[in-house]
Amino acid sequence: MARPELVPLDRTEVKPRAISPRLRTQLVYFMSAHGEPGVPPLGENEYWFAAVEVEKWLDEGVFYLVSPLDTANMTEVEITEEQESLLGWLNAEKIQHVRLDE
C-alpha cells in the first residue's frame, strides 16, 4: 500500500510530502471548511489550510477540538511532533491548497 502524500496545488514547484496514515486522518483538524471566506472551490481529496491559522497553531503549539458530546465547549489539544512538522512545512513553503494522493 502506497503511503499517502500531500501534493501542493498552489505551489507546484514544491515536492509532494509523504504523510503517515495516522496524520492523514488528522488533516480535518487543520483544514478550513468549504465555503469559509477565502477558501476557493475544492475538488475531491483537496484541502485548504489558511496560512493565518497555520501560523497561529505553530505559535501556540495547540489547537482546539469541539467534542461531539459537548458542542458548547472546546478542548485544547497540544500538537504532536508529526503535526508540527506538517504545519511547519505548510508555513515554510507558503502552501495552503493541497491534494491528498493515496
Rank of each mutant, 00 (worst) to 15 (best):
E5P: 00
L6S: 00
V7P: 00
P8N: 01
P8V: 02
P8S: 06
L9G: 01
L9M: 03
R11D: 00
E13Q: 06
E13N: 09
R17Q: 12
R17E: 08
A18Y: 11
A18T: 10
I19G: 04
I19A: 07
P21D: 01
L23G: 01
T25D: 01
T25H: 07
T25M: 04
T25C: 03
L27R: 07
V28S: 15
Y29C: 10
F30G: 06
M31S: 05
S32E: 06
S32P: 01
S32N: 14
H34R: 14
H34G: 05
G35Y: 08
P37K: 10
V39L: 06
L42Y: 00
G43I: 01
E44M: 06
E46S: 04
E46R: 11
A50W: 05
E53K: 15
E53Y: 11
E53M: 13
D59K: 15
D59Q: 15
E60L: 14
G61W: 08
V62N: 12
S67T: 12
P68L: 12
L69H: 14
L69D: 13
D70Q: 11
M74Q: 13
T75M: 14
T75L: 13
E76Y: 06
E76I: 03
T80R: 09
E82C: 03
E82H: 06
E82P: 06
E84M: 07
L86H: 09
L86T: 12
L86R: 03
G88A: 10
G88T: 13
W89E: 03
W89C: 09
A92R: 11
K94M: 05
K94G: 10
I95A: 08
Q96W: 00
Q96Y: 00
H97I: 06
R99P: 01
D101A: 03
